[in-house]
Design a binder for these strands. Structure first.
Ligand SMILES: [Zn+2]
Ligand SMILES: [Zn+2]
Ligand SMILES: [Zn+2]
Ligand SMILES: [Zn+2]
Lengths: 132, 132
DNA sequence: ATCGCACACGTTATAGCATAACGCAATTGA
DNA sequence: TCAATTGCGTTATGCTATAACGTGTGCGAT
């Protein structure tokens, strides 16, 4: 599941996300890529689908946006559950892992015999700078 | 923040959610209430906004749906973070709380001086029955 | 070689989710 | 009574995501 060479469209989308200073919606990405020939949402969504699969991009469910993984190189998927803190003022996102949280949630799912496939942890609020 | 008497529209929406055996989208709720005079999405969204505020309904960010709180009576907001396990096959939702998870996440936010406002924890996968 | 398949891509159309903006009516409290 | 608040109804619009169709390209099997 590690990333093979990206196709042209995948590379363009990834590049936009990496250079952005916060999460972007698919349509914002589309707008930024019109000069590179992008014309339709599907071009973005199809690239995102692969980038998510490769683990180099994350989807923020609570704000319908996408962000480049903060841990380039390491395969983020292998770190267990990924959590995000999202500043609702400046849009900055912090990505982190907490194995103890993973364990607690896994304990719960084991107890319920629930087969977890994908777990979302997103904390929305204000970053230190914006809360001041 | 505990629930005052619900208005007519709020009661209708809440009733639909309580009787449902799983989460519903706003537009599904709208369809179920057409016979009761609902004509537009805003009627649903405005009711949901209040029900969420009162803590008697939860929003599932990862599936753009809404579900009645599984803990009627108790003020769910006071239990700390609410977590959900969502079966992607049958749609069933289990709601639970884990104070240890809360503590770990609060420790992290304190360390980063991040002011958390709303935290989402959603586990998607297969329930025991559907995983068999 | 050429057939079949998998995959990326482009385009158009459509489906699904959410809110803006206007105006009206009922309630409340000064 | 007057102003402020809240709920409500309607129309229009915007944002998010996918369906369905067809094209081209690379690559292994026959
Ligand atoms: Zn990551
Ligand atoms: Zn901030
Ligand atoms: Zn609850
Ligand atoms: Zn199930």
């Amino acid at each position: 599941m590690s990333a093979p060479a990206l196709t042209k469209n995948q590379a363009l989308v990834f590049d936009v996300l990496e250079k952005a200073d916060g999460p972007l919606s698919a349509y914002t990405i589309l707008d930024k890529l019109r000069d590179h020939g992008f014309r339709a949402p599907l071009q973005v969504y199809r690239a995102l689908e692969k980038l998510l699969e490769y683990g180099v991009v994350h989807r923020l469910e609570s704000i319908n946006s996408f962000v480049a993984c903060a841990h380039p190189g390491e395969n983020c998927h292998s770190h267990g559950i990924v959590a995000f803190a999202i500043c609702e003022s400046c849009g900055q996102v912090m990505e982190f892992h907490d194995h103890e949280v993973d364990h607690r949630l896994m304990d719960w799912t084991r107890g319920k015999k629930f087969k977890a496939e994908k777990t979302t942890i997103e904390i929305r609020g204000l970053c230190e700078a914006c809360a001041a």
